[in-house]
Structures are given as structure tokens and as C-alpha cells.
């Protein structure tokens, strides 16, 4: 490296050196470099700037229709649902403001307590397994292999499949007598009632949820892995770094920001998932696999929009916190 000390004009560039040149670069006396002040190079005059606020007004004009559509499609239902949750509105009648009554009734319900515990037991465990599975499969698919395109397509299939088809398929596979899993277990003279006990029912829902959702993790992590320069791995290998060190020092820092985004999106989708529970267990046995969307649905079938909205909105603060966390940590990562 040459050391700049100052001078009137830029000095001619130092002899170019290559990063991996075997010969040691020749050190020469440093030229004096000074900030040019007397003579300014002629540059093309920039276009006349817009008057303050004019550009933003034009921009606003163009994005306004989209913003209005978004407000109508996203903002209105959200605000309406929030408002409903504080009323006793039913379908066809406006109802009245009841304050926190719907939430208080919800907190006193055993099904609510089960739904809260299932946030950890079903949603949390599903996310953890999806992450581990997604990371493993993405790592495998990131390696050179034959028919890599076909393998990637196969992995994406569960995610691309309609949820109804996927979860009905799992429901039938879990079936006690004619289900595919018990047919296989039958070869070993085993029989498992997958949906009869609370523990097995939860495990079954987790299994189906993971199967359907992990390809999204694979796609996200794989995309992030492919942005990591191969040279970094080559250099690390030359330095003698093993697989674990390469993962912790190169791969993980390279995919961490993407994993955060995928994790938050997946957490929101899984928490709001309805088909995975309703089609397999209807929230049972008892309320062992109860979740907030199922609670909300049960109220909705009785036209109780107020209590249905309360059950649906209860997880909103959690999502807001997750998104805020993502905004802070994700922003730092990208910087």
C-alpha cells in the first residue's frame, strides 16, 4: 500500500499488483497528493433541479391509486376487524360497543389457553423443524450434483400444492386403519392411532405443517447461499477452515438476513394457518390442537363477528413485534 501524504496534482498510479501475485510488491516512495483546489475539471452542468416538493407531488400522484387500493383492501378490513373485536356485532346486525368483553371472555376459555400453548407446541416446533430441514436441504441443493434442477423442483412441490389437497392427503395417511402410514407400520406388526391422543395429534399436525412449509425455507436459504462468493469458501479452505467454521464464518453471516425474513413470514403464515389444523383434527381431540384461526372460525359459524374478530386479532401484537424486530435487525444486516 502507498501512503498518501498530500500534493498539488494526482500522481501517476503506482504499479498494479495482483492479489495473488507470488512476487512481493515493490515499495516505492509515496507521491504527494493534494486535493485539487485551483483548477476544477469541467463537468457537464446538471439538469435544473425541480422546485422543492414538485417531484414528490408528482410521485405521490402516481402512487396514489395504489395506496388507495391498498388502504381499501388491507387497511379497511384490519381496522374493521379491530373495531368488531370491541363490539358484539353479529352478521346482519350492527351490535354495540362492549369494550374488552370479547377478550375477557376469550381469556376465560380453556380453548384459548390451549391455543396459547399451541403457539409454542405446534407453531414454535414447526418453525424450528422447518428451519433445520430448510437449511439442510438448501445446503444439499447448493452443492454440485446431477439433475439438480429436478431435485429443486421436487422439493418445491409440497409448497406449490394447494393446501387443501396437501392436508387432506396427510389426514388420509394418518387414518387409523386404511392410512398409508399404518399400512407401512402393519408390515412390522405395529399400529399407531396418530390422531387419537393429544400428543400424537399435535405431532401429526406439526409433521404435515412442516412438510408443506419447509420448501419456502429451502428456496429462501438457497437463494441467499447462491449470493455468497465461492472465492470466500476457496480462501477459507486454503486457510484450513473446516465445514463448521466455513458455515459459522461465511454461510451463516451470508444467509442470516434472509433467514430472519423467512422466519418472520413463516411465523405469520403458520400462526394464521387454518387448513393444517381444521382438515386434520378440527382443533381436537378435545382442544389439544386448537389454534386462534380455528377458534375464530368456530365463532364465525355462529355469526358472532365480535368474538370471532377478537380471536383473530389476539395475535396481531405478536406480528407487529415480529415485523418491528425484523425492521430493526434486518435493516442493520443489509447495511
Amino acid at each position: 500500500m502507498t501512503k498518501a501524504v498530500g500534493g498539488a496534482f494526482p500522481a501517476p498510479p503506482a504499479p498494479e499488483t495482483k492479489a495473488h501475485a507470488m512476487t512481493k510488491p515493490v515499495l516505492t516512495e509515496a507521491p504527494v497528493i493534494r486535493r485539487p483546489t485551483a483548477v476544477r475539471p469541467r463537468t457537464k452542468r446538471p439538469a435544473e433541479p425541480h422546485k422543492p416538493g414538485e417531484r414528490s407531488r408528482v410521485g405521490l400522484f402516481f402512487v396514489a391509486p395504489l395506496v388507495l387500493i391498498l388502504l381499501a383492501l388491507v387497511g379497511f378490513p384490519t381496522v374493521a376487524s379491530l373495531w368488531y373485536s370491541f363490539t358484539n356485532v353479529t352478521v346482519g346486525s350492527p351490535g354495540t360497543f362492549v369494550g374488552l368483553a370479547n377478550y375477557i371472555a376469550l381469556f376465560g376459555d380453556q380453548a384459548f389457553i390451549d391455543a396459547v400453548s399451541n403457539l409454542v407446541l405446534i407453531i414454535g416446533v414447526s418453525l424450528l423443524i422447518k428451519f433445520l430441514l430448510g437449511l439442510t436441504v438448501a445446503s444439499l441443493l447448493n452443492r454440485p450434483m446431477r439433475a439438480r434442477g429436478i431435485w429443486r423442483a421436487i422439493v418445491i412441490l409440497p409448497w406449490a400444492m394447494p393446501g387443501f389437497v396437501a392436508f387432506m392427503g396427510w389426514k388420509l395417511m394418518f387414518e387409523s386403519r386404511a392410512g398409508a402410514l399404518n399400512q407401512v407400520l402393519g408390515w412390522f406388526h405395529l399400529h399407531v392411532d396418530f390422531l387419537a391422543s393429544p400428543e400424537l395429534a399435535r405431532m401429526s399436525v406439526v409433521m404435515a405443517t412442516v412438510w408443506r412449509g419447509f420448501p419456502f425455507w429451502v428456496i429462501g436459504i438457497l437463494a441467499a447461499m447462491q449470493t455468497i462468493p465461492k472465492e470466500l469458501y476457496e480462501a477459507a479452505e486454503m486457510d484450513g477452515a473446516g465445514p463448521w467454521r466455513r458455515f459459522t464464518n461465511i454461510t451463516w453471516p451470508g444467509i442470516r438476513a434472509t433467514v430472519s425474513v423467512v422466519a418472520v413470514l413463516s411465523a405469520i403464515w403458520t400462526t394464521n394457518g387454518f387448513e393444517n389444523v381444521w382438515l386434520i383434527t378440527q382443533g381436537g381431540p378435545s382442544s389439544a390442537t386448537m389454534t386462534f384461526p380455528v377458534l375464530s372460525y368456530l365463532d364465525l359459524t355462529n355469526f358472532q363477528l365480535g368474538s370471532a374478530s377478537a380471536a383473530a386479532m389476539i395475535t396481531l401484537p405478536l406480528f407487529v413485534l415480529l415485523i418491528l424486530w425484523l425492521g430493526r435487525t434486518g435493516g442493520k444486516e443489509y447495511k
Binding site: 439433475a147 412441490l157 387432506m168 392427503g169 387414518e175
Partner: peptide
Amino acid sequence: MIKRRLVVATAAAVTMLIPLSGCS
């Protein structure tokens, strides 16, 4: 190589058949 292709093809078929296995 043929064996490897066979494994790929079999895996693809199994994956595609999983959700259909219980349909009547």
C-alpha cells in the same frame, strides 16, 4: 449412473404420490 437416476426418479414419484395416496 443408471442407479442414481433411478433413485431420483423414484424419489420424484414418491413425493408426487404422497398427497394422492389417501384419495379415494
